[in-house]
């Protein structure tokens, strides 16, 4: 699978204000298996880009396609099938079911297209240090814990691309390293790509493709 961006510019941006960007207004492709790190300061449209690729927003000009299929023409049902098997995501704002417990939040994604057995939830939670929080109502978890729940949830399904929108913003260095290790393992197991957007460059991506938005 390939994700192609052809002269994408958010409709709320002036076209001449994005001339320095390596993504906005350019033609660019993300191939399966390659990791892309997108770095940009606040307000440059990182979350918008992730939402455009995931199909949540359409307020842009240009063409965005999965392989040669323009996603502007996708139905909600077609997006669903891609979201079940080909594209997974960690939102910046996590987007968890606040009244459900941690396990339920992860399980609801796992059941949609089971890639791992249920025991894997416990294993991953232990690795990220939230193993004892599985029965807890999500609303009562801290931001850092919520971020780890969202990461584990995103890894429960098969995918070819993993979209990560500032997924470590509330994690300390230690937890950040653990999370990055887990994500990298899961991507490798699937031979999948990750598109990682953040405010600053991460050590993990040293020597790899880094784009400035």
């Amino acid at each position: 699978m390939q994700i192609n961006l052809k002269e994408i510019v958010p409709s709320y941006f002036e076209r001449n204000s994005v001339t320095n960007s390596e993504i906005w207004g350019k033609t660019i492709s993300f191939d399966e298996g390659s990791h892309i790190h997108i770095v940009a300061p606040s307000g440059s449209g990182k979350t918008s880009l992730i939402h455009f690729i995931y199909g949540l927003r359409k307020d842009y000009s240009g063409t965005l396609s999965y392989d040669d299929k323009n996603i502007a023409n996708f139905s909600l049902d077609l997006f669903s099938s891609f979201r079940q098997t080909s594209i997974s995501i960690v939102f910046q704002d996590m987007r968890l079911f606040a009244d459900q417990n941690v396990r339920q939040n992860i399980e609801i994604k796992r059941q949609l297209a089971p890639y791992h057995p249920p025991e894997k939830i416990e294993e991953m939670a232990n690795r990220l240090g939230i193993g004892n929080k599985l029965a807890r109502i999500t609303n009562s978890c801290s931001y850092g814990e919520k971020q780890r729940i969202a990461i584990i949830r995103s890894l429960m399904q098969p995918f070819k691309f993993l979209l990560l929108d500032e997924p470590f913003s509330n994690l300390d260095d230690n937890n950040r390293a653990k999370a990055m290790e887990l994500i990298a393992e899961e991507c490798a197991a699937r031979k999948a790509s990750m598109i990682f957007v953040d405010l600053k460059e991460l050590d993990f991506f040293a020597g790899q493709r880094i784009l400035r938005l």
Binding site: L56, L76, D77, S80, R83, Q84, R95, F97, I108, L112
Partner: peptide, 15 residues
């Protein structure tokens, strides 16, 4: 909100 999130996660409206 919950339904919207289910759709975002990949639950199909048809299902």
């Amino acid at each position: 909100d919950n339904l919207q999130l289910l759709l975002t996660l990949g639950y199909s409206p048809n299902w």
